[in-house]
Nucleic acid binder design. Structure first.
Lengths: 354, 354
DNA sequence: TTCCTGGACGGTAACGTTTCCAAGTTTTAG
DNA sequence: CTAAAACTTGGAAACGTTACCGTCCAGGAA
């Protein structure tokens, strides 16, 4: 039997049975080290203006007591914000948002910042409430994937704000997003380049990004000297797969179905593929945003992709700089490029109508 | 000029353009409403023991000033914890974790609680540090998807803890998880029932869940009167798809390959399918945990699934009750059931060897 | 020596809230 | 009508930290 050696854990031993373990405060540390409160604070905050010997005594006391600074009390002091950022977004289940969350979390963590997530329903009112709650927690900054609706109420919040993925109206703040228009153009150009002339576009009701992608789509058509058939521009009532599935079915059952489909969102792409699978039809398909397993589907899916993680990282970095006052430039607008990844579904030639 | 005597807050020296808008405090509200500070506090906290008329005056002042309680100052009072829960987990990019996060976020939000995410690298030391940081933020409770390693240091933290998905050693706390053993048994029974006798199992290095799933796998074999071929029990060095892909390739290129594979994790399942696709082999496959698009792959994937969202919800609910002191039962152990969802990949009969 | 300079340190006042206590006011009971 | 009880209300202390303002001491300059 492997007699595991004892844990190498000279942890400050708290008593097992005390649920209310009073955590030691700076005062306890000061008493233990035989110094004043101010000195402890100075040591904890980098130790300027403290003699090495004294600082060492304080550090010893800190270790012995297992002291850890109470961030709440610290944040109470005027001027000091808590060392947390807030992240307000929709559906964490959507890999797109999850990626943003993960990336910003990493960057924030490296600077010792925690990230508070706001639970957001779909409605703008819920978003507003969530934001207010986060602000009341004295977060040092807000990262918001904004819903439609006016965000002017953020203007006087006294907290730096960075919008992610899409800008908000009513306030001029930093924004980090992808080149939606370029992506839309890329997708359309790719399909047009294969000879497709009847291309449908499915749009989720997320006004800004949707609009830009559509604009790029139109531009590509114009450059190619073609008109967009407005009946192939489908505004979906919801942004989920089911909605796209239904719309695709209707599209393909028309007497003049499109020969290609551009799904402007990862969930929409899924819906499109689902419908096509059932209908046994195979128009060309290009999706916006890459997704897991896209390359493993019966026909690997061609997508317009961008570095979503970088979206989150940039946002967090920018926000941290703003919060620290290290960045006083006027509101920035960071736009990340898109690239088309051909995998098969987007390279199917148009079927001759007759 | 109205020689108002020094108001504490006649818009301090903030310049019009400064983002530093001083938010009103309870003192401002009290002055405005012509009442005492205590009265404002009482109104804000539900308004017991305050005359209706007075309360109304206070509420009016609150609205006029746009006052909002400073949660940080509130949390400073002894006994009061901040109204945030902490959630410590690994990779938000994994839909499994994302689902937990989303669900717990919803439940917490309904009770006015925010959720602070700890950024967690892979190492136990990072986890420990993240937890300490969160505790220093005075969160009301911790939800942890624990890494291996001792968690005894949480014993004296003075905060209720709920472990999610797997228990931790060194501390007796609430735990919410799925029936790993049952799930493992289910998968194996399903495959054995089809006549498979050489079933490989791929295990990610997450000791607890992995161990239980393997145990169920073994039990099913024993019940069927079969021995597990230990060379088909593959402990992967990492829990990602690449690792599983490599292992699968090696398995299938053996002279005596398995006729079925049980992938004990969603990412592993992906790796397995990837390898099989390239090798053009089609043993039966069952995965643990459902995943998006599982039903749309060339061969729809049979999985053992459970209600992951409920995992997150239960954890949050339990933690909220503990934090409120509403639940003083001994540590609970909530186990959610698993079910097998046949989709095709798990229903392939064994190929006759020769 | 004396004076000054400057670094090291101790003490204390905030920060915005909750909670307790005392004081004031109304209602109820006798 | 009076006394007690119940309810309102104002004020102040405390939570743990940081920032500021002194004091003290060493050491250099005069």
């Amino acid at each position: 039997m492997p007699c595991r050696e004892k844990e190498v854990n000279p942890v400050p031993e708290t008593f097992p049975n005390t649920p209310e373990a009073a955590r030691p405060t700076m005062i306890d540390v000061a008493r233990r080290a035989g110094v004043g409160l101010g000195t402890v604070s100075r040591v904890v905050n980098g130790g300027h203006g403290v003699r090495d010997e004294t600082a060492q005594r304080v550090r010893t006391a800190i270790d012995q007591l297992g002291f850890q600074r109470n961030e709440v009390a610290r944040a109470l002091r005027p001027g000091k914000k808590s060392s947390s950022l807030a992240l307000v977004l929709g559906d964490l289940t959507n890999p797109f948002y999850a990626t943003i969350a993960k990336a910003s979390l990493e960057v924030a963590g490296q600077s010792g910042f925690a990230v508070v997530l706001g639970s957001v329903d779909e409605d703008p009112e819920g978003e507003k409430r969530a934001i207010r709650e986060l602000v009341s927690r004295q977060v040092a900054g807000l990262m918001i994937v904004p819903d439609q609706g006016d965000h002017a109420f953020l203007q006087g919040a006294g907290v730096p704000v960075v919008f992610v993925d899409r800008p908000a109206t009513g306030i001029d703040a930093d924004i980090v997003m992808v080149d939606n228009e370029g992506g839309g153009r890329l997708a359309a150009e790719h399909l047009l380049g294969q000879g497709h002339e009847r291309i449908a576009i499915l749009l989720a009701p997320s006004y800004y990004t949707t609009g830009r992608r559509l604009r790029g789509f139109r531009r590509a058509h114009r450059s190619a000297g073609l008109d967009v058939d407005e009946s192939l521009v489908v505004q979906l009532p919801e942004g989920n797969a089911e909605s796209a599935e239904k719309a695709t079915r209707e599209l393909m059952l028309r007497p003049d179905p499109p020969t290609a489909i551009f799904a402007s969102t990862n969930f929409l792409t899924e819906g499109v593929l689902r419908a096509l699978g059932e209908l046994r039809r195979d128009p060309a398909v290009v999706g916006f945003d890459d997704f897991r397993l896209a390359d493993m589907l019966p026909t690997p899916v061609t997508v317009v992709a961008s570095d979503i993680a970088e979206l989150g990282r940039s946002a967090a970095r920018l926000l941290l700089d703003r919060a620290a006052g290290a960045d006083t430039r006027p509101p920035q607008r960071i736009v990340l490029p898109c690239a088309l990844i051909p995998r098969g579904s987007g390279e199917r030639p148009p079927k001759k109508k007759r």
